[in-house]
Design a protein around this nucleic acid. Sequence first.
DNA 1: AATATTTTTTAGATTTACCTAAAAATAAAT
DNA 2: ATTTATTTTTAGGTAAATCTAAAAAATATT
Lengths: 219, 219
Amino acid sequence: MNYSVSEENYIKAIYNLNGNKQPVSTNALADIMATKPASVTDMLKKLKTKKLIIYQPYQGCKLSAEGVKVALNIVRRHRLWEYFLAEKLKFEWNEIHVIAEELEHVSNPKLIERLDEYLGFPRFDPHGDPIPDHEGKMQMLKQVKLTQLPLHTPAKVSGLTDQSTDMLELLRHSNICIGTDVEINRKFGFDHSVEIKIPGNPLFIISEQAAQHILVHHE
Amino acid sequence: MNYSVSEENYIKAIYNLNGNKQPVSTNALADIMATKPASVTDMLKKLKTKKLIIYQPYQGCKLSAEGVKVALNIVRRHRLWEYFLAEKLKFEWNEIHVIAEELEHVSNPKLIERLDEYLGFPRFDPHGDPIPDHEGKMQMLKQVKLTQLPLHTPAKVSGLTDQSTDMLELLRHSNICIGTDVEINRKFGFDHSVEIKIPGNPLFIISEQAAQHILVHHE
DNA sequence: AATATTTTTTAGATTTACCTAAAAATAAAT
DNA sequence: ATTTATTTTTAGGTAAATCTAAAAAATATT
């Protein structure tokens, strides 16, 4: 029921590579974990005996049902800490991941429940990724670039793919933050710029270049 | 410059046992660390080569100047997290220590500085122990039981030696919290109860039994 | 299909932080 | 001042997580 930091990191890596449900190769894991394939094989054997993965030699691996549960719990911890770092400690979005990698291994369950409550039960982290609840369920909204959002479709800003100060300046000027409700009112064919509607604000136009880097969630 | 969790725990233990400046014995350390003396000897050799302790076989050990610096940094992290857990996440005082033992090993310096700032640069943790600043300096006020506070001496409530719900109820009723400014106005010889003055509040009396468990700081 | 290439696993070492059991040094007691 | 008891250290071993080098299996190429 309690796993080492190393085990947790492998489980997390398998989970992240496994999005497509295809088995994860030993080399791919070695790459992500910045280690050697031989070391990965050792760990895969161990995780297999603990029934966290399904693994046959030379066939790659994938998480078992129990493994997914463990992975979701790690992801939950990681994303809650990311939210805390950005929202409360005012870290920039590009700094939070590394720190959360350390904090995520502090696994006291009551701590995580209290943190969740303290943060107001956020459902998305500052990168726009959904935060699993204490049962492992998470909201699976479509995340798309603002350029791909259909016309007149209510959406919520969930992340950025560019966190440069120039970008942040532009967003601040437009009153766009994580969580802001937006809708595309009109698209201009000429330069592909888009007209944005934010409830309570006047309409305004944003360039394709900028819109490309803004991620939004919608149903 | 970066130490393992185990190394940090030894340094912390030596620091805690070393308050009286006497060298710490191998057995005393083994006891605290819940390990065997032979294991302690191994670690002491390692810490010596890293110049964190002064150690001669059979002579016990004490922290070097560098060791003290490292220890104070660990203590700083521990106490800041304790403050966070009690103040923000509303944990009871008896729950915070164990969780802070885990969090204290997350050593990203910027995280700790931001946390300190977020908490408002507290100078005492919820147990009333001083929090070292980022240079390792801490306020060394006298901590005494309320029963031992001299008459008419301004002091600040810094901790409790009894955290039972009964005790907390009594304190809430008297408007006493961590950080409350108090002063003893009068002591009654008959039952050793004390009359308390809190700025802006009416005077009130508290039993010796209760006052014994309230810790205060004064100059 | 046979050979070459890539991927993965085995075999044997290393490091960290422990352990037990026995030896050596120190301290206490006769 | 010996002997006894305690404390501490050495010697040798274990488990976790890594490594290198070599063997084996799977995949790709001619």
